[in-house]
Design a protein around this nucleic acid. Structure first.
Length: 477
RNA sequence: GGUCCCAUCGUCUAAUGGUUAGGACAUCACCCUUUCACGGUGGUAAUAUGGGUUCGAGUCCCGUUGGGAUCACCA
């Protein structure tokens, strides 16, 4: 049997990391099978929560990370429609059928009435009086136009059992199960019904979802059973956490995929990182492309406990991906950030080369290169460096020598500048650092810079380099 | 509150019942170096807790503690 998985988001906002990870696992489970299919289904049965543009974000995100779906609203497929609001008649049909089969009943109670009767603290469940209505009576009231819902009927006693691929065997008493609403009074199904009907009709073989569904899964199995359908394999996964107590959530504005990309994280790095949040390959490898993940992923190595999202490790991993980029690719990514931060004309190719090995996110670029725009106010004490054996007087002398020498240079390349300054140090009987360090400070005004003295000089160009040395001499003068 | 689930360094995690409890991030030190990084080497750091079973328990069983989920006409 070919594996079929589905990613079934509800279009209620942006894609958060936990959501994307679920999609990734679904994708990988499907793609572990040569003919496996990954299906996209939009669960928009709650019109109140629908957010305009949310489906576009879902499409864009999946495309950006390369998780292409085989069937879905836009690409079609043999099991459509793939948007639940377009499947309304299907749910109604099956809901009425389920009533006939005894798996559900019509209920005329208002929401308030149902609410009133139960008490969570006292562990009292809603006892639906409508359960006792005869079919004829119920039909009569429906015909009379009375609003109703279809509510699940649970008469079974004892323990329900099912197997979960991650958590093992799960046992829950039927008494714990709620007779929930399956078809709302507006004619839309709830998740509890729609996902069962759709997963069956779409031939889904593996259902991957958050572990908050572990305890309601027996209810879904009851529906499968009543219809005589075979339930899918269940793969419940633990949540991705913000900290030890809280899940990552849309509501708190926690890290979304879009946010991370906007901050200069690469989609490949994000995918790689979240794959490892709750799964591991069984060896010590950590860097995986999506294609590599397809080869090594296995359900057996999925974890049972929640994982805290650690932006620091993601940042490190992003740095690894940045370093693997070709010079061209890196430049393409970095250029917009660089241009946005600079008005001055500089050699941005040279700047880009210097940036690549020391950047972890593209978002850090503006901060790193602000000195190019303008030398910050700095103390002359910066010229004192024990390790470089410099102080203000040595630095002043070094800058005078350097300015003289640089003035005469026309081949303004890093190799040449470095060679020239090195030989200058030799001539004057100074250490390399005694020339390089003061020049770097003069050009940047910073203790920490991307690149050394001559690299900065190349980026800034000859004229600006000489001007900065001159004003540094004024400061030391 | 009932029920279900979870528990190894700060974080992500590895460990057929037998390892000096391993790796990665972070952190610290050192090396490399014209700075900062990158890279390299090394260090600090964990089996929540109490019982059992066993020659032997991170691993199996029970209790305790802590955390999470669920009990919607949300998904």
């Amino acid at each position: 049997m070919t594996v079929r998985t589905r990613f079934a988001p509800s279009p209620t906002g942006y894609m958060h990391i936990g959501n994307l990870r679920t999609a990734l696992y679904e994708y990988l489970i499907a793609k572990a099978d040569a003919d496996g299919k990954f299906i996209l289904r939009i669960e928009d049965t709650d019109q109140k929560r629908y957010v305009e543009g949310a489906t576009d974000i879902i499409y864009a995100t999946l495309k950006q990370v390369g998780m292409n779906w085989d069937e879905g609203p836009d690409v079609g497929g043999n099991y459509g429609p793939y948007v639940q609001s377009e499947r309304k008649p299907i749910y109604a049909e099956y809901a009425h059928k389920l009533v006939e089969l005894g798996g559900a009943h019509y209920c005329f109670c208002s929401k308030a009435e149902a609410e009133e009767e139960k008490d969570e603290e006292q562990n009292m469940k809603f006892q639906d009086p409508c359960k006792r209505l005869s079919p004829e009576e119920a039909k009569k009231r429906i015909a009379a136009g009375e609003p109703y819902v279809v509510r699940q009927t649970i008469n079974k006693k004892g323990k329900s059992k099912y197997h979960d691929e991650v958590y093992g065997d799960i046992e829950i008493d039927y008494d714990e199960l709620d007779e929930g609403v399956l078809l709302k009074s507006d004619g839309f199904p709830t998740y509890n019904f729609a996902n069962v009907v759709d997963d069956h009709l779409m031939n889904i073989t593996h259902v991957v979802r958050g572990n908050e569904y572990i305890s309601s899964t027996p209810k879904y199995n009851l529906i499968y059973e009543t219809f005589g359908w075979t339930p899918p394999h269940y793969v419940h996964v633990p949540p991705v956490m913000k900290d030890a107590q809280h899940k990552l959530s849309k509501r708190n504005g926690d890290a979304s995929f879009q946010d991370l990309v906007a901050k200069g994280y690469l989609p490949e790095a994000i995918i790689n990182y979240i794959a490892l949040l709750g799964w591991n390959p069984g060896n010590e490898d950590e860097i995986f492309s999506l294609d590599e993940l397809k080869k090594v992923f296995s359900i057996e190595r999925l974890n049972r406990s929640p994982a805290i999202f650690d932006i620091v490790k993601l940042t490190w991993m992003n740095g690894q991906y940045i370093r693997k980029l070709s010079e061209e690719e890196f430049f393409a990514h970095a250029e917009p950030y660089i241009r946005k931060a600079l008005t001055r004309e500089v050699d941005i190719r040279a700047l880009s080369r210097v940036l690549q090995p020391r950047l972890e996110t593209f978002g850090a670029i503006p901060e790193q290169i602000a000195f190019i725009e303008q030398v910050p106010d700095y103390s002359a004490d910066l010229y004192i460096n024990k390790k470089m054996k410099t102080d203000q007087e040595i630095s002043r002398q070094a800058l005078i020598y350097a300015a003289e020498r640089l003035e005469k240079i026309s081949d303004w390349t890093n190799d040449n500048l470095f060679a020239e300054l090195k030989s200058l140090a030799e001539e004057k009987g100074m250490k390399n650092g005694q020339i390089m360090y003061p020049v770097r400070i003069a050009l940047s005004g910073l203790a920490t810079t991307p690149g050394g003295a001559t690299e900065l000089a190349v980026i800034l160009g000859k004229q600006e380099t000489l001007e900065r040395i001159k004003s540094a001499l004024n400061k030391l003068g």
